[in-house]
């Protein structure tokens, strides 16, 4: 019988080694697999809120309109009515948050207008375009056009 026990011991040791390995794996896995993994799919559910928890730079059209009726009114009379304030003035969420503290720098029309209106064959033919050197000969665009209502 002593011989039988010796053989059984091998099996028990083996079982203990496997159990210890499995235990170590589970503990390690529990420690490194983050909470929420697999809840919604093969990813960490909390990553969705991480992607949401970020500040915005563009306040959005509706916010500008809250305070700037005058410009909204001017713009509504011309074709720039479809162009959002921040398309020309850039991201202004921080200005909208605290207008006293952060005053926007006004755009440089020499760059601004040409980016949209410089003549190019790749632009859709129905879009109003000018070859700026012929059109204004270097004069500032806003010397003649009102940026908010550009029709003359």
């Amino acid at each position: 019988m002593a011989g039988g026990w010796r053989h059984a011991r091998h099996l028990i040791v083996l079982a203990l080694v496997v159990a210890a390995g499995l235990g170590a794996f589970l503990i390690l896995r529990g420690a490194v697999v983050p909470a929420g993994f697999g809840k919604l799919g093969h990813y960490r559910a909390g990553a969705i809120d991480d992607n949401r928890r970020r500040p915005v730079s563009f306040a959005g059209q509706a916010t500008c309109a809250d305070c700037h009726d005058k410009q909204v009114e001017a713009r509504s009379k011309g074709k720039h009515r479809i162009v959002s304030c921040e398309a020309c003035h850039g991201p202004q969420a921080r200005h909208a948050d605290d207008p006293e503290k952060l005053k926007p720098v006004l755009p440089d029309t020499a760059i601004l207008c040409r980016r949209c209106h410089e003549k190019d064959p790749a632009k859709p033919a129905h879009f109003p375009q000018v070859a700026s050197t012929d059109h204004s000969g270097g004069a500032a665009c806003n010397a003649c056009h009102q940026p908010h209502a550009p029709k003359m």
């Binding site: 969705i48 992607n51 949401r52 928890r53 970020r54 500040p55 915005v56 730079s57 563009f58 959005g60 059209q61 479809i82 162009v83 959002s84 921040e86 398309a87 991201p91 949209c116 879009f127």
Partner: peptide, 21 residues
């Protein structure tokens, strides 16, 4: 990210906000 932080609070994406046409 399709501006996920914006679209989940009722704003449009930054690219769409700035697109003039």
């Amino acid at each position: 990210s399709l501006c996920y932080h914006r679209i989940t609070q009722g704003l449009t994406t930054a690219c769409c906000e700035a697109c003039p046409t």
